[in-house]
Every structure is written in structure tokens, then in C-alpha cells.
């Protein structure tokens, strides 16, 4: 079962929830798709690390072949090309790697070369396979890295599926999404079975919750909410969930102990029985909620 954990803004508790769910499950895979600032690995401290570079294709021009017809410039939606004097300029940071310019060039003056934009790091932490996507600073889009992270998940699963029937074990995959509801989040959730929406107990939290709720509805994904940082008294996020028929999966209290452990990069479910029970309970609720 593939589960995405998302929220409308950063700092709500996506990593807290996804890391602890992965730790509370018998066997699981944790995939950090928050490639601009991946931090799940700080908790897992994975071992046996293997790194793989992720590259995209960008155009390279042979100015001897280029006759200045400008078909590539007209084609490029992102304006990554300019023709000055008798030289074609390529703006690598602006290019979105669609490959169209090289296809359309009648003189075959453009060809594609690889440009590294980040890497994928695979390791193990006890019962959890930890996979981290890392985007290099300054790169325009983390989507190629997320695509690669999730392609691997599918490959892994097809083999896993066969095993599954024999072992009748449930393999959980947890996807720690980037914050917000933009393309990069859509890419992260498009193939999951279930979405966990993490929300804070404030009006601002409700606004962010409604953004991601709208997104998962658009994708037709079953979802439930985790209310984080819960205090006594009224919780606007809880009210929003009740009014909009969102299943509340669990409430995580606003506690000094959680904050302290979390800021020391400790995994609650591995340190303390009470928290382990909390996340096991959440896992059960998700497994039920996501059952077809």
C-alpha cells in the first residue's frame, strides 16, 4: 500500500508522521520526495548508502551547423534560446528539458547532453528502506527526481506484488511530500493508494488543509487527516474536517516531549511505547481507510 503524506505548508508535521509511520510498520519503505529540503534521513540515519545521480537532457548547439532559422526559438515555450549575431545562446537554467528544439531543428545543429540536477540516496534503517531525493541548489524543478524515485517504487512493487501473495505481508510505502499543492506535489501523489493530510490547529492551518484537500479530491484519492499539535479547546482544523467529511485518523498532542525528541532527530515510535502505539493506531486506521 502506497501512502502519501502531505500538507499545505512546511513545518506542519509531514516528516514527523511519515517517518514514524514507516518506523511503526513491520516492513516499509520511506521515500523523501521533498527534494528541495529532504530531512527524513536525519531521523533514520540510514546505513549502506548507495547514491545515484539524476540528470536531465539539455540542448547543446553546434554553431557551425546552425543557419539561424530560429525555428527552435519560436518553438521554445520557456524562452531558453536566443540568437545573437550568428550564435545561438542556450540558457540552461531556463530550459525545461522537453527536447523539442533538438527535434525541430532542420539542420540537426542541436543535440542533447546530460546535466546532473541531483541524486537519489538509498539506505536502510532497521525495518525501513530509506530513499531520499536530493535536488541540487539552484535547479528549477525537482520533478525529474520525483519521477525517478517513484518509478523505482513501481519496479520494486511488481516484484514485491508476487511475493506479497506468498507472504501475505503488507508492505507499506510512505511518501513524504513537498509542502503545498503545486506540480511537484501532484507528481508525488498521482500513483498512491491513500493520502494523509497533516493539519495544524489554526485558521492558517485550515486554509492550508483546504488547499491539499481540494487537490486530493481532484485526484480522486481516498484521504484522512492527522491533526498535529493539538491543544485543549477549539481546533479549527477539526471543525473543518467534520464540516467537509474528512476522516480524522488521529490527533497528535502538542507536547514538550515530542518537540524535544523531534528536534533531537529521534524517532518517537522507536523511543517510546506510548508513541509507538499512537502511530500503530494511525497505521491501522490508514490501512482500513485505504482498503478498496
Amino acid at each position: 500500500m502506497k501512502i502519501a503524506v502531505l500538507s499545505g505548508k512546511g513545518g506542519t508535521g509531514k516528516t514527523l508522521v511519515s517517518v514514524n509511520l514507516a518506523a511503526a510498520a513491520k516492513a516499509s519503505t520511506y521515500i523523501d520526495c521533498d527534494v528541495e529540503e529532504p530531512n527524513g534521513h536525519l531521523f533514520f540515519k540510514p546505513e549502506k548508502l548507495v547514491n545515484e545521480t539524476v540528470a536531465v537532457k539539455i540542448p547543446e548547439v553546434d554553431n557551425l551547423l546552425c543557419n539561424g532559422c530560429r525555428k527552435c526559438i519560436e518553438f521554445c515555450k520557456f524562452n531558453a534560446l536566443a540568437y545573437i549575431g550568428d550564435t545561438l545562446l542556450v540558457f540552461e537554467e531556463v530550459c525545461h528539458s522537453c527536447g523539442g528544439c533538438a527535434l525541430i531543428c532542420p539542420e540537426k545543429a542541436l543535440r542533447e547532453k546530460e546535466k546532473a540536477i541531483g541524486e537519489i540516496q538509498r539506505g536502510v534503517s532497521g525495518n525501513v528502506k530509506v530513499i531520499t531525493g536530493i535536488l541540487n541548489t539552484g535547479e528549477a524543478s525537482g520533478i525529474p527526481i520525483i519521477k525517478k524515485l517513484l518509478d523505482d517504487m513501481h519496479e520494486g512493487n511488481s516484484k514485491e506484488d508476487k511475493k506479497k501473495n506468498n507472504e501475505s505481508g503488507k508492505e507499506f510505502v510512505f511518501i513524504d511530500c513537498p509542502p503545498g499543492s503545486a506540480c511537484i506535489v501532484m507528481e508525488s501523489i498521482k500513483d498512491v493508494d491513500y493520502c494523509i493530510l497533516v493539519a495544524e490547529p489554526t485558521l492558517f492551518g485550515v486554509h492550508n488543509l483546504s488547499m491539499v484537500h481540494e487537490l486530493v479530491k481532484l485526484f480522486g484519492k481516498p484521504c484522512g487527516a492527522v491533526l498535529n499539535k493539538c491543544l485543549d479547546g477549539e481546533n479549527p482544523a477539526e471543525k473543518y474536517c467534520r464540516e467537509n467529511g474528512i476522516n480524522i485518523l488521529c490527533q497528535i498532542p502538542y507536547e514538550n516531549e515530542i518537540g524535544t525528541m523531534n528536534s533531537n532527530a529521534l524517532i518517537l515510535a522507536r523511543e517510546n511505547d506510548r508513541y509507538q502505539a499512537l502511530f500503530r493506531g494511525l497505521l491501522d486506521a490508514v490501512a482500513k481507510g485505504g482498503a478498496p
Binding site: I73, K77, F78, N79, L81, A82, Y83, I84, V94
Partner: peptide, 18 residues
């Protein structure tokens, strides 16, 4: 014609100037 570009408007506008 670059005013409404999704991105790279500076490059396209500069091309016009050139």
C-alpha cells in the same frame, strides 16, 4: 511579445531589442 511569457520573458524581450 514576451510580456505574457510563462518564463524567460527577459530573454525573449532582449531578442526583440537585438
Amino acid at each position: 511579445n514576451a510580456a505574457a511569457s510563462q518564463g524567460g520573458s527577459g530573454i525573449k524581450a532582449a531578442q526583440t531589442i537585438v
